[in-house]
């Protein structure tokens, strides 16, 4: 029994770690869509930030410099998508897909140019990576029954970006529902004409949403290459940007439900890692190609079965023009 409990805790621990980039990216998508911009470029921004963060951390030896650079790169990409969507009134899905492809090609090209490691960045160690933060009193509390292992395994021992991700959720809820900026942002995504009539700039609101989007995707990418991993590797985002988007839809464009959707996805991801090479009763060993399919199949089932017909922000994806 104690073994099973510990097993579940270890699973929850890796679920939380794997959910970190998802939570950040899903919130990034949420800000964008709430302001009226569809963003399927989460994937590309994460990948770009992962590269920039790993490269800067490798050169400076500081994970924090990596974080700054990663966030900077991601903001630049977010503003590019914003400019295409807002001022150029371009097709937002094409723009997002294009950014994904540009980054998938450009990041390994630059990595090769700078580090000559076949499209990767050097392996990070020590201060160049975000290390696990051990919470105070782990030794004392860790010995308590039930609560002890929970505290030691699940709550303590993540890197700082994971805690930032968890904190971003109540902050997002507060910003969106309790501040004037949030009200206007949501209005820009539902009824931009009304926002415009009130004398508030729809363009300005949407650009600000994209800057927040860039910061969050930057954190997500940084978590990938300097927290979860220890270098930038080609295509390391592996569809997480799209899973985040699905989690946001499953969470009905609301921060707290989105967090739970991401945790669920993180859990499925952790489970698929655990199932690799394990003999299950009756079924036997599941081939790894099937276990890595799990999160994707899960996403399809969730979207088809449990979400149903839900309304996205009404003006999401529609360029705004004063002439209507």
């Amino acid at each position: 029994m104690a073994d099973l409990y510990l097993d579940i805790l270890i699973l929850l621990d890796s679920a939380l770690r794997l959910a970190t980039p998802l939570v950040l990216a899903a919130l990034a998508g949420l800000y964008a869509e709430r302001s009226g911009i569809v963003d399927i470029g989460l994937e590309g921004k994460m990948l770009g930030a992962a590269f920039a963060a790993a490269a800067a951390a490798a050169v400076t030896g500081s994970a924090w410099m990596g974080l700054l650079t990663g966030v900077g790169a991601s903001i630049a990409l977010a503003l590019l998508h914003g400019w295409v969507s807002i001022h150029q009134r371009g097709n937002q899905i094409v723009s997002g897909a294009a950014i994904n492809i540009i980054v998938a090609g450009l990041a390994p090209t630059l990595a090769n140019h700078w580090f000559h490691l076949n499209g990767q960045t050097p392996l990070l160690s020590g201060d160049a990576r975000f290390q696990a933060l051990i919470w105070p009193g782990v030794d004392a509390i860790g010995n308590l029954p039930v609560i002890g292992p929970l505290y030691a395994e699940v709550i303590s021992g993540h890197n700082v970006v994971t805690y930032i991700a968890i904190l971003s959720v109540p902050i997002a809820a507060w910003v969106l529902y309790r501040t004037r900026f949030g009200l206007r942002l949501r209005a820009a995504g539902e009824n931009p004409e009304a926002v415009d009539t009130a004398g508030i700039s729809v363009y300005g609101l949407r650009y600000r949403a994209m800057i927040i989007n860039g910061v969050l995707c930057g954190l997500a990418g940084t978590a990938l290459s300097t927290g979860l991993g220890a270098a930038f590797v080609r295509d390391m985002s592996a569809g997480r940007g799209f899973l985040a988007l699905a989690a946001m839809i499953f969470g009905r464009w609301k921060p707290v439900p989105t967090l739970f959707a991401c945790l669920l996805f993180g859990f499925v991801d952790a489970l698929q890692g655990r199932l690799q090479g394990v003999e299950l009763p009756l079924i036997g060993e599941i081939p790894f190609q099937f276990t890595i399919m799990l999160p994707y199949i899960f996403t399809v089932i969730i979207l088809a079965g449990f979400v149903g017909r839900i309304a996205a922000p009404r003006a999401s994806g529609i360029p705004y023009s004063k002439e209507g």
């Binding site: 295409v84 150029q88 009134r89 371009g90 094409v94 897909a97 994904n100 492809i101 998938a104 090609g105």
Partner: peptide, 25 residues
């Protein structure tokens, strides 16, 4: 040799961006 397959992918992405999403540019 300095120009890899990856860079060509990035160029394709740029063409997609400019031709597909920036048609009003």
């Amino acid at each position: 040799p300095t120009i890899s397959r990856d860079l060509i992918i990035a160029v394709q992405g740029l063409v997609i961006l400019f031709a597909g999403a920036l048609e009003h540019l």
